[in-house]
Design a binder for these strands. Structure first.
Lengths: 116, 116
DNA sequence: GAGCATTATATGCACATGCAAGGATTGCGC
DNA sequence: GCGCAATCCTTGCATGTGCATATAATGCTC
């Protein structure tokens, strides 16, 4: 039980480290940032609610809010208000954001292939 | 490949969160802090070099240095200089530290049993 | 043994994260 | 329609983390 947890932890740390360094070095993206771009790329209309993204990325609301803020500053994402529930916010991938995700995808895939 | 990584990530996040909250609530310890106490408890003479502990906990040197600083402040660990290599530092579990680890162990085990 | 690269740890700094609180909107009960 | 709890997001704050650097000790080369 303890051994299994330690193995899981070790594998996670190893892969995350490799991803983090490769994505940062080659694309100036953190793993969480790339993960959000990827989820948006998969989503219908390239849109997703903030709370859904937080769940996807295993982040708190506040952490995700600031992460999307960074992506917005970078021009990768637009925030727009949900029509039928004005509390909600859609994060929507821009063309530049989609391009960045497409560019980073091979790196992501290669690192997984090498470490998983 | 991607799916496997996402599953690994999800499992890790779920278990880590549960451990973090339980250990914090019941014993005022973070997961990394408990992990270090546990490794020290397992070690011969309850002693271990800083670098080894950093590897155990998957932390950077600096993060581990400060973590041991916190454990020292709490009275759970002593730092002592290595005789035959005066650059090296042993972190040594105190009686209070050992007691804290023994007290927290059931929590750790229960959470793993419930989530793993 | 003098100089220099290497190893082991600590610290200044920047930053991402979580928690708690705030502000806005919705929906439910009456 | 009014009040009030619940939901969705943002922000102030404290803190843990990594990177780069500083300090100290070792060992290697000549």
């Amino acid at each position: 039980m303890l051994a299994a947890w330690r193995e899981l932890n070790a594998a996670h740390a190893r892969i995350l480290d490799a991803l983090e360094h490769a994505l940062q070095e080659r694309h100036r993206l953190s793993v969480s940032e790339y993960e959000v771009l990827q989820r948006l790329a998969e989503a219908p209309e390239h849109k997703r609610r903030m709370q859904e993204l937080a769940d996807d990325a295993h982040l708190s609301q506040s952490a995700l809010s600031r992460l999307v803020g960074r992506l917005e500053t970078a021009g990768y994402v637009d925030r727009c208000i949900c029509d039928y529930d004005r509390r909600g916010i859609w994060a929507e991938l821009t063309d530049a954001g989609r391009a960045a995700q497409v560019e980073a995808e091979p790196t992501h895939r290669q690192v997984l292939a090498a470490t998983l």
